Amino acid sequence: MVLFVTGTCRKACWYCPLSKERKGHDRVYANEKCIATPGDAVAEARRMSALGTGVTGGEPLDKLDRVVEYCRALKRELGPGHQIHLYTALAPTRDQLERLSGLVDEIRLHPPHDQWETIAQSDFIASARLAKHMGFVTGIEVPSLPGMDLLEAALPYLDFLNINELEWGESNAEEMRRRGMVPEDGVHNAVMGAREWGAGLCSHQKVHWCSSGFKDSVQLRKRLLRIARNTARPFDEVTEDGTVVYGLVEGLGEVPEIIRELGDDGYELREEGLETAWWILAEHGDEISGTRYIVERYPDRGIIVEVTPL
Results as ranks from 00 to 15, higher is better:
Glu272Trp: 09
Asp114Ser: 13
Trp116Val: 01
Ile227Met: 13
Leu90Tyr: 04
Lys33Phe: 06
Asp40Thr: 03
Ala282Lys: 14
Met1Val: 12
Gly57His: 02
Pro111Asn: 07
Trp14His: 04
Phe4Cys: 06
Leu150Glu: 12
Leu158Glu: 02
Cys210Ser: 12
Arg66Asp: 08
Val182Cys: 10
Asp114Pro: 00
Asp236Arg: 00
Glu77Tyr: 02
Phe124Arg: 00
Glu170Val: 14
Val55Asp: 02
His25Glu: 10
Asp265Ser: 14
Gln96Arg: 11
Ser289Ala: 15
Ile294Gln: 11
Cys210Asp: 09
Cys71Asp: 04
Thr291Gly: 00
Cys71Thr: 15
Asp236Glu: 15
Asn164Phe: 07
Val255His: 01
Cys202Ser: 11
Pro17Trp: 03
Arg292Ser: 13
Glu69Ser: 13
Leu161Pro: 00
Ile84Tyr: 00
Glu257Lys: 12
Ser122Met: 09
Ile259Ala: 07
Ile258Leu: 07
Ala91His: 04
Glu306His: 14
Arg226Val: 02
Ser144Glu: 06
Gly102Asn: 10
His188Ser: 15
His208Ile: 13
Ser144Cys: 11
Phe4Tyr: 14
Glu271Arg: 12
Gly139Thr: 01
Gln205Met: 03
Arg301Met: 09
Met1Leu: 13
Gly273Pro: 07
Lys63Glu: 15
Glu287Met: 14
Gln121Tyr: 04
Asn31Asp: 15
Pro80Gly: 14
Phe4Ile: 07
Leu262Val: 06
Cys71Gly: 02
Glu268Tyr: 02
Gln115Arg: 13
Gly52Glu: 06
Tyr298Thr: 03
Met48Leu: 11
Glu117Gln: 14
Ala190Tyr: 03
Gly7Thr: 06
Trp14Lys: 05
Lys63Arg: 15
Leu269Asp: 03
Glu77Arg: 05
Gly247Arg: 05
Glu98Tyr: 03
Glu287Cys: 10
Glu174Met: 07
Arg178Ile: 01
Glu69Gln: 12
His204Gly: 04
His208Tyr: 10
His208Ala: 10
Leu109Val: 02
Arg129Trp: 00
Gly7Glu: 04
Leu61Gln: 07
Ile303Met: 11
Val249Met: 01
Ser212Tyr: 08
Arg129Tyr: 02
His133Phe: 10
Gly39Lys: 03
Pro17His: 09
Lys11Arg: 15
Pro234His: 08
Arg260Asn: 08
Glu167Asn: 08
Val249Phe: 04
Glu275Leu: 14
Glu21Tyr: 06
Arg129Asp: 07
Pro92Met: 10
